[in-house]
């Protein structure tokens, strides 16, 4: 089956040890996680994981179900690039004077719409926001100038572009189902 880069978005309760449980599902199937970002979500007490991995649809479907099966996971969904707005941030530490003295350097920075945030005689730091491919492209071009000391990227963060807010709907559905259950018991 065709392999693609899938973005998996997981929402969970904020309990210790959950990250472990989520990543273990990938480990068990020997799927490499390309990037992983965990942060608070817009819902209080709920954490959001944005994970990317190269795999096929049949596998990712099973992975997502097995993640969702964890008791404290609210929802897990997978997306292809067309279904999300995604972004990344990257930092590049570049050695001076190689960087400053290279006439190509400033052109590269401008063409990529990156920002120089620190300059001193030993190095500069460049910051770039953008899509994953843009960040990789800038890295490749800077590497060709032989001046990259350090490079780091945040990993993908993404929000869905659909009009449905899946997690909000899920929480409403759960509360509603519980209310009904209680009524039936009474």
């Amino acid at each position: 089956m065709e392999k693609k880069l899938y973005t998996i978005i997981v929402h969970s309760e904020n309990f210790a040890g959950l990250l472990n449980q989520v990543t273990a599902v990938f480990t068990r199937r020997q799927i490499n996680i390309e990037s992983l970002n965990v942060s608070a979500s817009s819902i209080q007490g709920v954490h959001k994981y944005t994970i990317t991995a190269w795999t096929d649809e049949e596998t990712i479907e099973k992975v997502v179900k097995q993640i969702e099966k964890k008791i404290d996971v609210l929802q897990a969904n997978y997306f292809v690039d067309e279904e999300i707005y995604q972004h990344e941030i990257a930092l590049y530490k570049l050695s001076n004077p190689e960087f400053q003295n290279n006439p190509m350097a400033s052109k590269v920075i401008r063409r990529h719409n990156a920002r120089i945030v620190e300059v001193n005689p030993v190095y500069c730091i460049v910051e770039k926001n953008g899509m994953s491919e843009d960040i990789t492209e800038l890295y490749t071009e800077l590497s060709e100038l032989n001046c990259v000391l350090q490079f780091v990227r945040s990993g993908r963060v993404a929000i869905t572009t659909s009009n449905l807010e899946l997690v909000d709907e899920f929480l409403e559905y759960r509360e509603e189902k519980y209310r009904k259950q209680k009524q039936e018991k009474v």
């Binding site: 969970s12 309760e13 008791i71 404290d72 609210l74 929480l171 759960r174 509360e175 189902k177 259950q181």
Partner: peptide, 12 residues
Amino acid sequence: LDFIRSYDPIPD
């Protein structure tokens, strides 16, 4: 305890 919001034991 008979409710955990993240855990739906019996699907509809």
